[in-house]
C-alpha cells in the first residue's frame, strides 16, 4: 500500500497541463494574439512590393499545420500569414491551445479570423480571449485588410453576421491604395446570409480600392468573379489539402498562386 501513495502524489504534481476540469472550459494558453502579431507587423518597415500567405481550415490537421509552419519558416520573402478561420473543429479548449502552440512557432506575424467551427460551444469566447475582436482592420504599408465574421448560419441568419453597418463604415475610407477583405465563409456560400448577399457584394464594390476578397470554408482552392463586377474572390487552403494561396502585391496590382507544402 505504501507503494501507491508516492505514485498518487507524483501524479498529482506532475503537470497542471493535464488538469482538465471539462473539455468545454475556456483556458487559453495565449491571449490577444492578433493584437500581439499586429504590433509585430507594424514594427516592420513595409515593402512596396510584398508577399503574404492566406490559408485556413486547419481544423484537426495538426500534423499538416506543423509542416505548414516549418514550410513558411523556410521561406524568406513572406511578410505575414492570414488564416481565414476554422482553426479548430469543435470550438473547444484543447484544440485552440494545440493550434496556438503550433502557430507560435511561425517567424512571421499571423492574423486569424473566425470560422464557423471556431464558434461552436464556447468557441466565440475562446476566440475573443485568444485572438481578439471578430471584426477588425489593419494596415500594411498602403494596403488595408478588413477582417470580419461572415459565418451567418451560426446565429441562424438573424442578421447579426456579417455586421453590415460596421463593414460599410470601414469601406467609406478611400485613403488606402488597396483594400483586401478577409473572412471565412464566402458570400456565395449557403452558409452566408443569402438575403444580404447582393448588398454585401455591392458594398464591397462600392469602394473601388477593394482589390480582392479572401475566403476559406470550402476546402477547395478556386479564384473567380462570381458576380461579374470585376472583383475577384479567392477561396483557398485547408489542412488536409496541404495548400495555401500566395498573394503578391505590387503597387495596386496583385497576383495569385496556389502553393503546396
Amino acid at each position: 500500500m505504501y507503494r501507491i501513495l508516492p505514485v498518487m502524489t507524483a501524479i498529482l504534481l506532475f503537470s497542471c497541463k493535464n488538469i482538465m476540469f471539462h473539455p468545454e472550459e475556456v483556458r487559453p494558453n495565449a491571449k490577444n494574439l492578433n493584437a500581439i502579431n499586429l504590433q509585430k507587423l507594424q514594427s516592420l518597415t513595409p515593402k512596396a512590393s510584398f508577399k503574404f500567405i492566406m490559408t485556413g481550415d486547419t481544423q484537426e490537421f495538426y500534423d499538416e499545420l506543423e509542416d505548414f509552419v516549418a514550410h513558411v519558416n523556410s521561406l524568406n520573402d513572406i511578410s505575414f500569414v492570414l488564416l481565414n478561420g476554422d482553426l479548430v473543429e469543435f470550438g473547444w479548449n484543447n484544440e485552440y491551445n494545440w493550434v496556438a502552440d503550433r502557430l507560435a512557432k511561425l517567424k512571421v506575424p499571423y492574423i486569424a479570423t473566425i470560422g464557423n467551427h471556431d464558434m461552436l460551444a464556447n468557441g466565440r469566447e475562446m476566440y475573443k480571449l485568444m485572438f481578439g475582436q471578430e471584426n477588425f482592420v489593419f494596415n500594411y504599408g498602403t494596403s488595408r485588410f478588413i477582417c470580419l465574421n461572415t459565418n451567418s448560419r451560426e446565429t441562424a441568419f438573424d442578421g447579426s453576421i456579417p455586421d453590415m453597418n460596421w463593414l460599410s463604415d470601414q469601406l467609406k475610407d478611400t485613403t488606402p491604395q488597396n483594400i483586401f477583405i478577409l473572412s471565412h465563409v464566402p458570400p456565395f456560400s449557403d452558409d452566408f446570409n443569402r438575403s444580404i448577399e447582393y448588398n454585401f457584394r455591392v458594398l464591397l464594390r462600392s469602394n473601388l480600392r477593394t482589390r480582392l476578397s479572401l475566403h476559406g470554408h470550402e476546402h477547395k482552392y478556386h479564384v473567380e468573379q462570381p458576380y461579374g463586377d470585376g472583383l475577384e474572390y479567392l477561396v483557398a487552403g485547408s489542412g488536409e489539402q496541404r495548400n495555401y494561396a500566395l498573394i503578391t502585391v505590387d503597387g495596386s496590382n496583385y497576383s495569385l498562386e496556389e502553393k503546396f507544402y
Binding site: F21, E24, E25, V26, R27, N93, N122, E125, M126, L129
Partner: peptide
C-alpha cells in the same frame, strides 16, 4: 461544476 474563475466559463 466548474466555477467561472477556474474554467473561464461556468459549467
Amino acid at each position: 461544476y466548474v466555477p467561472e474563475k477556474l474554467g473561464g466559463v461556468t459549467i
